[in-house]
Design a protein around this nucleic acid. Structure first.
Length: 352
DNA sequence: CATCCGTGGTC
DNA sequence: TGACCAAGGAT
């Protein structure tokens, strides 16, 4: 027992809070189990972190269960067919993540004996693993003292130190603060604790400062600026683009779809053939095959990261034996609407 | 450093 | 209802 009580340091205060409040997640080893010696599975840590990039825990949960049930190890995933992985990822967004996920799994299986390297620099070289994810795997899976800097930590650091410099300019400064706080003891639990704090207490709007474990040392709370931080440089407005998609159905029920190019929007995903999507709108029709294409009442409205989209629809029935000029037919028993990215699924839902 | 890249929930 | 926001990475 200490004979003189001193104020606990910040990391320890947060770890104590995490021991009592860590939320259960399918990919997480609870702090009690972890302290008892249970090690996380690096494959599950990696998979969850890639899925969680710019994506909420609620959205990821079911996808994580389906992926780990279907591909229990990185070797299983490495051996999967591209179309199966893209289809399983459909709806989660940012499809470059799925392409890089597969590339990464195959590199780990082929060059690393099926084991993720316990090395931050080596992780950084893998596809789809950037500064955040390399630090997350290093700390959470291997308990190496690397600082994670995601949107949560940026917000927590900006408030804790009352930093008013706007993002992204403030990012290096926030990273330096995050690194200075990262402890050598339990860095994995600490990393998850800071992110939990940002997700549940130090939230973007109406932060729950009253129950925050860092309430006393928080400079922004003292200054009354917490809810206004972090500052961000304003974003550009989103233009509206328009296009046409063609939903062709063969008389036996097969749908005419195409696999989109690897690079660019919805890269590698299944979709309806159509025109380019431009602000000027389509100047001419672009059917994938000659047919009696009929306009469909109603339009698809969808918002991507950097533009709004309004899609007009055309529908037609194609005779059996059609050799499409563009795309390929997907047999009725092989067609799963859930394999489509959301904008394409919206078009299907409107027409079926 | 700026741009591109999805989606669903929230207020 | 529309803008913001989420455990970012690649180019």
């Amino acid at each position: 027992m200490r004979d003189q009580q001193t104020a606990p340091d910040l990391p320890q205060t947060l770890l104590d809070w995490y021991d009592a409040h860590a939320r259960a997640m399918p990919w997480r080893v609870p702090p009690a189990d972890r302290r008892a010696g249970v090690a996380p599975d690096p494959y599950r840590v990696w998979l969850s972190e890639v899925m969680l990039q710019q994506t909420t825990v609620a959205a990821v949960r079911d996808y994580f269960h389906r992926f780990t049930a279907r591909w229990p190890t990185v070797g299983d995933l490495a051996a999967a067919a591209d179309a199966d992985v893209m289809g399983e990822w459909a709806g989660l967004g940012y499809y470059a993540r799925a392409r890089n996920l597969l590339k990464c799994a195959r590199i780990v299986a082929r060059d690393h004996g099926g084991a993720f390297p316990a090395d931050h620099a080596a992780l950084l070289t893998l596809p789809g693993i950037g500064p955040y994810t390399a630090a997350a795997i290093s700390s959470i899976a291997f308990d190496l003292p690397h600082a994670v800097l995601d949107g949560n930590v940026e917000r927590v650091m900006a408030r804790l130190h009352d930093i008013h410099t706007p993002l992204p300019e403030a990012k290096p400064h926030l990273m330096a603060r995050a690194e200075a706080l990262t402890p050598s003891e339990r860095p994995g639990d600490y990393a998850q604790a800071v992110m939990d704090l940002g997700a549940t207490i130090c939230t973007p709007k109406s932060p729950a400062c009253g129950i925050c474990p860092w309430r006393d040392p928080c400079a922004a709370r003292l200054a009354g600026t917490a809810a206004d931080l972090p500052r961000k440089t304003p974003k550009k407005p989103k233009p509206v683009r328009r296009g046409i998609v063609y939903l062709g159905r063969r008389s036996d029920g097969a749908w005419l779809l195409e696999t989109r190019p690897e690079k660019g929007l919805l890269g590698g995903m299944l979709g309806w053939p159509g025109t380019d999507w431009t602000e000027a709108g389509p100047q001419t029709e672009a059917p994938p095959h000659p047919a009696d294409w009929q306009p469909h009442a109603g339009e698809v409205r969808h918002t991507f990261t950097h533009f709004h989209l309004i899609l007009s629809l055309r529908v037609a029935t194609l005779p059996e034996g059609t050799r499409p000029q563009r795309g390929h037919f997907v047999e009725p028993d092989e067609f799963r609407p859930s394999d489509l990215p959301t904008v394409m699924r919206k078009a299907f839902d409107l027409v079926r």
